[in-house]
Design a protein around this nucleic acid. Structure first.
Lengths: 220, 220
DNA sequence: GACACTTCTTGAACACGTTCAAAAATCGGG
DNA sequence: CCCGATTTTTGAACGTGTTCAAGAAGTGTC
């Protein structure tokens, strides 16, 4: 098997050191100089592999997302109802992010900037976002009773958006063990499922149609 | 009448210069050094009045909010239905923020940090947030037909939260003249009004009760 | 007016993210 | 093995937000 090239080794070393320091002392306290020193390279060399400190956060984002995909697939296995599947997926997401919660607030400012590669809507994040979207598509497609047809296409993206909202809530959640976010998930998941079952009521159905058409027209 | 003290004059001068530069060249390009130079004071002096660059953004936030309160009160005058009142208020908000849209993305990263004074949930922003909440309370209380009783207490805060969401959307909106955000407002306002009128349907009412109790339990 | 005391102002200095010209190491072809 | 080209590595230097010891200006008291 091909040995990892020297170049790739250095790249991994820098990334590993950086992410460990992010976890242990936080984003802001982890300076590019300290990463370089800890990894035994020069500052300039770290910049040779990562154009900015933000790109190191991007690495973190990608790894967290990959782990979420695995954990969510496990947790959803065998669960049939939409509410349960959604709940399992969201809790799995929280589990994966947990080690970073202490410093989540520091990361969010980076992620929210539209110019940052870490921004979940940015081009650099397309791959990770698509993978994340796939998790929610899987939730919807595997659900039984099945999701109303007219919602099936849009729901995954809407749920993913909701997940971003939950993550934002989680960052601000100072309650012990993120109890409030857990409670939010447990409350909101069955509500969404029940809300969808109302779709058959004519009055509701009409409103829902408008919601959908608005959400479609707004996403360009 | 009492003349503004020399101290207060200097403070205002620094703030005025800073906000003008924010508008004209953006948040990041406006350096503390350039603010000081432009205002004819030393860097340290600017810091004597504003503990950080963020506190200058806080000043901006307060002024924008005050202007929104005035514009919204005008726009809502004579409008009776909830949808119209909500629409007018949200559009007024966009109008006030418009001069800063070019650089809105730079400000959002500052505002989102939970440790920042600018964060709308922070202690330093309590006054501005309460004033902003009052705008939405006024929308609800003045609406006719009246908002269902069980919603009247919670709706203003929920609408305000929605307004924060619209502002976030607006920051990311790259369409010409923020057309997509305008369209979002025009679509979402009547939907909320119509959705509320469904509250009388028993099945919907039960779901709504759960939404409300969840939203209450989650806000600590 | 002289003296203490507070408020205001200064600019050099610090640590940070980032850049870049130059040097060192590596590689490929002869 | 050697030489040119490419990739990798270095560390000094830049501009940034922020701090702080020192001094200047103002204010009240006798």
């Amino acid at each position: 098997m091909p040995m990892a090239s020297k170049s790739e080794q250095t790249r991994q070393l820098v990334a590993d050191v950086a992410l460990r320091m992010f976890r242990e002392i936080g984003f802001e306290k982890t300076t590019m100089r300290s990463i370089a020193t800890e990894a035994g390279v020069s500052v300039g060399n770290a910049y040779y592999y990562f154009a900015s400190k933000d790109e190191l956060v991007q690495e973190l984002y990608v790894r967290v997302q990959a782990e979420h995909a695995v954990k969510a697939a496990e947790a959803v296995d065998g669960v049939k109802d939409l509410s349960g599947r959604l709940k399992a997926t969201l809790h799995a997401g929280l589990d994966v992010m947990e080690p970073y919660h202490r410093f989540g607030a520091e990361f969010i400012a980076t992620a929210i900037r539209p110019t940052s590669p870490v921004n979940p809507f940015s081009g650099e994040s397309t791959a990770a976002r698509d993978a994340s979207l796939a998790i929610f598509r899987n939730i919807v497609e595997g659900a039984s009773p099945a999701v109303p047809k007219k919602l099936r296409a849009d729901l995954p993206e809407l749920l993913w958006l909701g997940y971003m909202g939950v993550a934002l809530f989680w960052v601000y959640d100072t309650s012990e063990d993120r109890r409030r976010t857990r409670k939010l998930i447990d409350g909101v998941a069955p509500l969404i499922a029940r809300g969808l079952s109302l779709a058959r009521i004519p009055g509701v159905s009409k409103v829902l149609d408008d919601v959908l058409s608005l959400s479609r027209s707004v996403r360009e």
